[in-house]
Amino acid sequence: MIIRLEEENDVKEREQLLDAVMGPHRKRKSSEKLRRGRMPSAGLAFSGIANDGHLIGTVRLWDIELDHDEEGIRNALLLGPLAVSCSHHGSGVGSQLMRTAIRSAALLGHGAIILVGNPAYYGRFGFSNELTGKIAMPGPFERERFLALELTAEHLSGCSGIIRPNGRYRRAIKVANCVSKVALAS
C-alpha cells in the first residue's frame, strides 16, 4: 500500500468508501457543516492505495478559524473524515494516514488539528479533549469526543467560541436548461 496526495480520480471511489464505512447519514454530522462547499486544505488530502490500485483509505484536513483573545482570529485544521475499507481494518492503513496527515500539516506550518472522534484511537497520536474546553462545533457534538492536537505549543491558548470554516470554496457546477453545464469560478 502507498499513501499519496488525493487525486481527482480518487473522489468517486472516496465517496463510495465513505458511504460504505460511515453510512448514509454521514453528511448530517456537525463537522460536515464546516466542510460543505469547501475544498480540503491545500496539500492535505490523502489516499491510501492498495497494491491493486484501489482506494482503501482516505483522510482530509480542512481550514477552519477560531476566535482568539489577542489576535481576533486564529487558524487551525479540522481532520476528517478518516476512513478505511472494512476489508483493511486493523492493517495499519488508518495509522499511516494519520501520521502522514499530522506530519504534513506540521511541515506546512499549521498550528493545530481538531477533530471529533474516538479518544482511545486518536489519543495514540497525541489528541486529547484537554485543549477544546473553550471551543465548540457548530451543531450537536459529543464533548468527550471533541479532540485537538497542537502542532505549535500554545496554538489553541486564548481560543474560544464556535469553529468556523475558512478555506477555499469548491468550484460550483450550474446546470442551465438541463443540458449544458457551466463552471463558475468561486
Results as ranks from 00 to 15, higher is better:
Arg74Ile: 06
Leu149Pro: 09
Leu17Trp: 03
Glu70Ala: 15
Val93Pro: 15
Cys86Asn: 15
Gly126Phe: 11
Ile2Met: 13
Ile73Asn: 08
Ala83Thr: 02
Ala76Asp: 08
Glu32Trp: 06
Asp67Tyr: 12
Arg145Glu: 04
Ala148Arg: 12
Ala42Arg: 15
Ala112Glu: 01
His68Cys: 06
Asn51Lys: 14
Ile102Gln: 04
Arg124Leu: 11
Gly158Tyr: 13
Ala105Asn: 11
Gly92Glu: 04
Asn177Ile: 01
Met22Leu: 15
Ser31Gln: 04
Ile114Asn: 10
Ser47Lys: 09
Ile135Thr: 09
Phe46Asp: 12
Ala120Asn: 03
Ile49Lys: 03
Ile114Pro: 09
Ile64Ser: 02
Lys181Ala: 13
Val116Trp: 00
Tyr122Gly: 02
Leu5Glu: 06
Leu108Lys: 15
Met1Ile: 07
Phe127Asp: 00
Leu107Asp: 13
Lys174Asn: 05
Asn129Cys: 01
Arg170Ala: 02
Glu154Gly: 05
Asp69Leu: 12
Ile73Glu: 05
Gly53Phe: 07
Val93Thr: 15
Gln16Asn: 07
Gln16Gly: 05
Ile73Val: 14
Thr100Val: 14
Arg4Glu: 15
Asn75Ala: 15
Gly53Leu: 11
Pro24Trp: 07
Glu32His: 08
Thr152Met: 13
Leu108Trp: 05
Asn51Met: 11
Ala101Cys: 11
Val182Lys: 11
Ile113His: 10
Leu77His: 10
Pro81His: 03
His110Gly: 06
Ser31Arg: 04
Gly80Tyr: 00
Leu156Asp: 01
Val11Cys: 04
Asn51Pro: 10
Val179Gly: 05
Phe141Cys: 09
Pro81Tyr: 00
Glu154Trp: 03
Ser95Asn: 15
Gly123Ile: 00
Leu184Gly: 06
Thr152Pro: 11
Ile113Val: 15
Asn9Arg: 14
Ile102Asn: 11
Gly109Glu: 00
Arg124His: 05
Ile162Ala: 12
Gly161Trp: 08
Ser87Gly: 12
Ser91Leu: 10
Ile56Ser: 08
Pro81Asn: 04
Leu156Pro: 04
His25Gln: 14
Gly94Lys: 11
Arg35Ser: 04
Ile64Glu: 06
Glu70Ile: 08
Gly43Pro: 12
Arg74His: 09
Val93Tyr: 14
Leu78Val: 09
Pro24Phe: 09
Asn51Leu: 13
Arg143Val: 03
Leu77Met: 09
Asp10Glu: 03
Glu70Arg: 15
Gly161Tyr: 10
Ser31Asn: 02
Leu34Cys: 02
Asp67Phe: 07
Ile114His: 06
Val116Leu: 00
Arg103Gly: 14
Ile135Ala: 06
Ala112Lys: 01
Met98Pro: 05
Leu17Val: 07
Leu97Tyr: 13
Pro40Phe: 04
Leu79Trp: 01
Ser160Trp: 07
Asp69Arg: 14
Gly109Ile: 05
Ala106Trp: 10
Gly117Met: 02
Arg74Asp: 10
Leu107Arg: 12
Lys29Ile: 01
Phe141Met: 06
Met22Cys: 07
Ile49Thr: 09
Leu44Thr: 01
Lys174Trp: 09
Lys27Cys: 02
Glu6Leu: 09
His68Ser: 06
Arg170Asp: 00
Gly133Met: 00
Ala148Gln: 09
Gly57Asn: 10
His54Phe: 07
Asn118Gly: 04
Glu71Ile: 05
Leu66Thr: 03
Thr132Lys: 02
Ser104Gly: 03
